[in-house]
Structures are given as C-alpha cells and as structure tokens.
Amino acid sequence: MAEPFTYGRKGISGRFEDAERELLRGLFRDVVALLEPDEQPEEDPLAALVGITPNAAEPEDPALKRLLPNVSKDDGEASLEFRRLTERSLRESKAGALRAAAMGLESKDVLLDATAAAHWATALTDVRLVLAERLGIRSEEDAERVHEITDWSDVGDDDVDAYLALVYNFVTWLQTTLIDAMMAAYRAEGGHGQADRA
C-alpha cells in the first residue's frame, strides 16, 4: 500500500508499490489521450502557431467537457469564442502536468518540489474528474455510494464499476494527503498567492 504524501524538510514525499505506479501511470496516460485534440490534417499552421483553434467545439464526451468547461453559463457563442482562443493551451497545460506526474513515477520514492506538487495536484484532480464522470457521480449521494466501496475482495472479476470505484477512492485518498502536505508547505513558507506574483 502506498504511503501518504507528507511534508518534511526535503519537500513533499510519497512512496508507491510497483502496481500502484503502473496504475497511476496508466490513468495519467489515459487522461492525456483524452485531452489530445482530434487530428486536424488541414490545420492552419498560423492558427497552431498562435495557439488558437478556429474550429473549436464544445466536447461531446462529458468527461472531456468537465476538463474543458464553458466559460459562460448561458452564452454559448461567448463560450465558443473563448474556447477558440484558450482551449488549446488549456489542453496542453493539463497534458503537461499529467506527463510530468507520470515521469515522476520512475522510482518507488517520489519527492516533489512546489512545481512538481502542483503538477500532481492538477493531474490527480483531472483523473478524478474523468473517473467520476465514468462512475456517474453527479451528486453528493453518488459520491458517498462510490466512497463506500473499499474492499478489493468484494469486487468480482468482471465488475468494472466496482473496480473503477476502488481506483477512484485510492486516487481520492492520495490527493487528500497531497493537499494536506501542500497546505503544510504553503503555511511553512508564509503563503503568497500566485495572483500576487503575476
């Protein structure tokens, strides 16, 4: 069983079993694949260069839509325009964090500096958002129902939902310990928001 992330003198550290590293790498890889834009063989190279997506559309997959949500609640055209201008860099940023987290799993012992911890936090969040969508978590009651599935021995060989629920609960636990550790690090360093520095 993995050890929780903890904050100490050297930074934020964690430790994983081989099977857990494989599992996490697979999850990070799956979400990267989900985020990769559809092939655009006749894409305008200038559009690619400046990072816009002229033909951007609201994702049909609800999990992808949760990762790349509309920026306006009720103005579809404004959301689409915003998507054209920002979606590409958002996809790339998320995929970059997921890849960085996957790279960090080269060894059992994981030591995270502030940047790596931030990558892990968003990577685990995006994995949880996608798993939650696949598990049909739409309400707190749904979340609690999934949370109650904790025993691997209860899961039958072909019970995909129960397996996904256990994976979701593992990732949730991992992220809980990571956020606690990041919060401890933030407090120890005196806490200055990113917006202040921008």
Partner: peptide, 8 residues
C-alpha cells in the same frame, strides 16, 4: 479550469 474547478 486548469486547476480542475468549474468556473464561469
């Protein structure tokens, strides 16, 4: 959105 929060 990059943090995974739903914002408008």
């Amino acid at each position: 959105h990059n943090f995974g929060l739903w914002a408008t």
